[in-house]
Design a protein around this nucleic acid. Structure first.
Lengths: 130, 130
DNA sequence: CTTGACCTTCCACTTGCTGGAAGGTTCACA
DNA sequence: TGTGAACCTTCCAGCAAGTGGAAGGTCAAG
């Protein structure tokens, strides 16, 4: 199967699929005309990576997940550890974004937003402390 | 003031301060020995950018905020618009992270995490349906 | 006079792609 | 048989927002 069809089936842009090949994540076969050729199994892996990336795993984590996926003797605890680590990342990110949100919202509410030059947002940004 | 002291006072790495200069965000004076020399006003601006970056504004937004900060005739509504746009960005990000969190948590809970090879997380990642 | 802490520029690397140029292949249609 | 569109290939450059390191100049203390 050509890369275009593969792209459609995996949901990944062709550019991205080629990129994954250059970094050694997903290999491809070649046909006589030098076109890439993908099997169902390879498309399966591309979808696997696609989903993993959507869940916020880094490329390196995807590499590990793929290896675990292909290793029939792996321990499911290994996989869970990866997912649990991601979960704490996400929690930390949500916490810090929520903090940020509070600060910004306070600023927006303090700002009357008219044509006069005094603006509490700029004043806060310019504050000496921290 | 040398860049080292400026770095300490602004909380930004010296590398970053130099970087901001190359992209035309914050200028510096030069002394006879070609060392950068910063005034209190410039340190003020660096802190301003530091805080703005911490609040998640992009460099381009920082550039606009700095211009507004220096333009005594600006309308505070311009600033509020920038801040409000950031607020929706943050909300969208929090929403999508929360979705993500739900999915991952479900997977982690479904996984017994022992030494046996069956793992619902990998199975879910490998699912055919998108 | 040397040592160490500064400072300078420049180039490469990071993450995860994306865009574009220049060119080869295939297929349908006239 | 030609031609045009729609594929495919490689390679090079760039995005954000810096970070790391090499090679070398400067300054102050002992």
């Amino acid at each position: 199967m050509n890369i275009g069809e593969t792209s459609r089936r995996s949901g990944l842009p062709a550019k991205t699929i080629r990129y994954y090949e250059t970094i050694g994540l997903i290999q491809s076969d070649r046909r006589d005309n030098n076109y890439r050729d993908y099997s169902d199994d390879q498309i399966h892996k591309l979808r696997f990576v696609h989903r993993s990336r959507d869940l916020g795993f880094t490329i390196e984590e995807c590499r590990q997940l793929l290896a675990l996926y292909e290793d029939k003797s792996r321990a499911s605890a290994d996989v869970r550890d990866l997912a649990t680590a991601r979960l704490s990342d996400i929690d930390a990110k949500i916490r810090s974004l929520t903090e940020l949100r509070k600060t910004l919202e306070k600023l927006v509410h303090a700002c009357h937003g008219n044509a006069r030059p005094d603006c509490p947002i700029l004043e806060e940004l310019a504050e000496e402390k921290s």
